[in-house]
């Protein structure tokens, strides 16, 4: 197995990290930019009978059918705006989409020192960062739909 040298490891941990900050129901959340596949206008989803929590619809994007993770319901919020956006994320089981507020997401670059552990249990996030008085959770994409 290849191991990263001490110098390389230090470099990795100290490199600034990039996040996309978006909002759902006015609540700001972040996701690693590497886990973002696409942002597009939201198209009506197709309901699919399901017993999986918060995954009960799909959207069709050309020839692809993607599951919808209902983040707004998970947060007990309603998506804001008349023209919500579709955030396509790279989930380990395959791409998945979320309906987010119409407010355009922004890119944030953070120094590793700014990132802290997220102690909240309301959302699958292990890390967060402070933005003024706000604590912005950084979503752990692999946990979406599996532990909520």
């Amino acid at each position: 197995m290849l191991r990263m040298g001490e110098r390389g490891r230090r470099h990795t941990t100290r490199s600034p990290r990039n996040f996309l900050v978006f909002s759902v129901g006015g609540r700001r959340l972040a996701v690693k930019t590497l886990e973002v596949a696409e942002i597009s206008p939201w198209k009506p989803s197709i309901p699919v009978g399901s017993r999986t929590p918060y995954i009960s619809a799909v959207v069709r994007q050309d020839q692809a059918v993607l599951p919808v993770f209902d983040l707004a319901s998970a947060l007990r919020l309603c998506v804001q705006g008349n023209n919500p956006l579709c955030l396509r994320i790279k989930h380990p089981l395959g791409d998945m989409v979320m309906c987010i507020d119409e407010e355009m997401p922004v890119l944030h670059t953070l120094e590793p020192a700014a990132i802290q552990a997220y102690r909240g249990k309301d959302i699958p996030a292990e890390e967060s960062y402070a933005n003024g008085l706000d604590e912005i959770p950084i979503l752990t994409i692999s946990q979406l739909g599996s532990c909520m």
């Binding site: 399901s50 999986t52 599951p67 989930h91 089981l93 739909g145």
Partner: peptide, 8 residues
């Protein structure tokens, strides 16, 4: 899609 993990 594999994310559907319930009875469905």
């Amino acid at each position: 899609p594999a994310q559907f993990s319930g009875a469905e």
